[in-house]
Structure formats: structure tokens, C-alpha cells
């Protein structure tokens, strides 16, 4: 036990906290570099491309053209003024409208249905585990697969949905759900709600389970009507969890691509911002134009997130301070 430590040099060393901070920096560096390479840098390049006339086949041949991809005033020889660019493109505004419509409606139904499913799962009954297992299935199925499955079920001639509806006497002949302009959005919404409600239900359920049981017991002893219990106790208490879930879903819905691409290809009624951007980027060889559109989508989501954080003062870091 003797002669330890007395002769060691003292003072010039890092204390524990400094040592840990140095380690933390080393640990974080690879992740930050990786995220920079796959997120920040590509994002900056996309934004840069949106100000050029780069084409898919010649990525480095683009020239700076300012805001022309967004909005450009052009005077025709006849003297008439026309506006060009994404912001003057009816197809773009149609996509914006589709995206917003899709996001709001799908998230609304997913929240309501998710809450109902969560309330069911929060009750104690035999076979609860089976129900939870069952609702996980739509979540686990790949989006593309569910799109194909539903496309088949919604098939105009041989689809089971039409068959059911005809047998129930709701419709007389089969509807081309995914192809018809009138019903394409409905079809997309149905599939998305089917696929994503389980996720909402699980998040709601987690929120519900954080409510202490004795609150309900107290309410029951006081003879409060169950409906009133829901509105006055359950809903206010799950609201924070619900809001986080809604925001996550909303951000997810705003960028929807795969379901629509596969279920209703080339349908004007469902084309969203992501779909139209990719179409221009890759399929139509309007690389820079598509970049401008995806930049706009990014800007919209960024504004949305900042507003939300600012208004809600959501503590997204999950830390207890402040």
C-alpha cells in the first residue's frame, strides 16, 4: 500500500470532466462527420443546384441562373408578360395542395383512430396481447408491399373491396379506385391510415399508460361518467404525448413518396411534392428544376418545425432543465 502516488507529478493533468469531454468529442466526431456527408452536404448541394441549370446528364456543367427555377419574369415578343418557374407552375401548386390535403386528413384520422385503438388496448381484457400483435402487422409490412396488396384489393374488376361493396348493395358496379381522379386520393388515404394508425396507437398507448390508474379509480368513486372522464381527464393528460406523435406523423406525411408512387402512379389527383420533385429530378431530366422543388419542400418543413418548436416550446432534447 505504501509508496503509491506521492512522487507523481501533480496538477498539470486534465481532471475527470475535461477528460470525459475530450472522449465525448472523439466519440461524436465520426457521427457528426457521417451526418455531414449524408445530410448537410447533399442538402447544400441540392440548394445550390436549384440556382443553376444543371442537368442530370451533366452534373458539373450547370451555370448559375439565380432564382429562375423558382420564379422568372419573361416578356414575350408580343409584349405579354408571363411568369415561369416552380412558383408559377400550376402542377407544383397542385402537388402542394395534394400534399397538404393528404397530410391533414391522414394525420387527423390516424390520430382519432389511433386513440380509439389505444383506449381499447389500455383496457384490460383477455387476448389483449393478440390485439396488439395484430395491429403491429400493418406497421411491419413494407409500404411498397402494402401498396401492392391494397392495389390488388382495390382492383376495379377483380378487387375484393368492390366485391364487398357490391354484395352490400353500396355500389352497382366496380369502381376503379386507384385510377379514377375522384377516388385516387381516397384510396391513398385509406392505405396510409391503415398502415400508420398502429404507430399512432402505440404512441397513444404509451401516453395513456403514463396516467396513474388511481386517477381513474378516484373518478369512478366520484361517479364521473366515463365519457366525461375521457374528455376531462384522459385527453388532457395524453395531450403532450399526442402532440409529439402528431408532429412526427405530420412531418412524415408531408414527405410521402413511396405509397403514392406505387399505388396511383402518374395520377394528378395524388401527386405530392416529393413525387413531383423526383419526377422532374430524374424522369424528366429537369434536374435543377426538381432541386428547386425539393428545396421548397425542405423549406416548408423547416419552417413548420421551427414554428412548432417555437410555439409549443417543446423540449425535444428530453432533458429536465429549464
Amino acid at each position: 500500500m505504501a509508496n503509491r502516488n506521492n512522487s507523481r507529478p501533480i496538477g498539470r493533468e486534465l481532471d475527470l470532466e475535461a477528460q470525459r469531454r475530450r472522449a465525448a468529442f472523439l466519440f461524436l466526431a465520426p457521427m457528426i462527420i457521417a451526418l455531414f456527408c449524408v445530410a448537410a452536404w447533399p442538402l447544400l448541394r441540392t440548394i445550390y443546384f436549384s440556382f443553376t441549370n444543371t442537368s442530370l446528364t451533366d452534373l458539373y456543367g450547370g451555370e448559375w441562373i439565380g432564382f429562375d427555377n423558382y420564379l422568372r419574369r419573361r416578356e414575350l415578343s408580343s409584349g405579354r408578360v408571363v411568369w415561369r418557374g416552380t412558383l408559377a407552375d400550376p402542377a407544383w401548386w397542385n402537388a402542394v395542395w395534394n400534399t397538404v390535403r393528404f397530410s391533414v386528413i391522414s394525420v387527423f384520422f390516424e390520430t382519432v383512430l389511433g386513440l380509439i385503438v389505444a383506449l381499447v388496448l389500455n383496457a384490460e381484457f383477455k387476448g389483449r396481447g393478440w390485439v396488439r400483435a395484430a395491429i403491429l402487422i400493418p406497421w411491419a409490412i413494407p409500404t411498397i408491399v402494402s401498396a401492392k396488396m391494397w392495389a390488388w384489393m382495390l382492383n376495379d374488376q377483380f378487387g375484393i373491396i368492390n366485391d364487398i361493396f357490391i354484395k352490400l348493395g353500396l355500389i352497382e358496379r366496380g369502381i376503379a379506385w386507384t385510377a379514377s381522379i375522384d377516388t385516387a386520393m381516397t384510396a391513398v388515404l385509406v392505405v396510409d391510415i391503415w398502415k400508420t394508425t398502429p404507430f399512432m396507437a402505440l404512441l397513444c398507448l404509451a401516453g395513456l399508460q403514463m396516467i396513474p390508474r388511481d386517477i381513474y379509480e378516484a373518478a369512478r368513486i366520484d361517479g364521473v361518467h366515463p365519457v366525461k372522464v375521457f374528455w376531462k381527464i384522459t385527453l388532457p393528460l395524453v395531450r403532450p404525448a399526442l402532440m409529439v406523435a402528431v408532429i412526427f406523423r405530420m412531418l412524415d406525411a408531408l414527405r410521402i413518396f413511396d405509397l403514392i408512387y406505387v399505388l396511383t402512379p402518374n395520377s394528378k389527383a395524388t401527386k405530392t411534392m416529393s413525387v413531383i420533385s423526383r419526377e422532374n429530378l430524374i424522369d424528366f431530366d429537369k434536374f435543377a428544376y426538381g432541386s428547386a422543388q425539393s428545396t421548397l419542400l425542405f423549406a416548408i418543413i423547416a419552417v413548420f418545425v421551427s414554428l412548432y418548436i417555437w410555439l409549443g416550446r417543446v423540449n425535444l432534447s428530453g432533458e429536465g432543465n429549464r
Partner: peptide, 13 residues
């Protein structure tokens, strides 16, 4: 929460 389409052009490059 990034919209993946926003990095598509840059990632493609």
C-alpha cells in the same frame, strides 16, 4: 425528420 427528397439531388451527385 428531413424530407429525403431534399437531399436526393445532392446525394445523387
Amino acid at each position: 425528420m428531413f424530407p429525403q427528397i431534399a437531399v436526393l439531388a445532392g446525394l445523387f451527385e
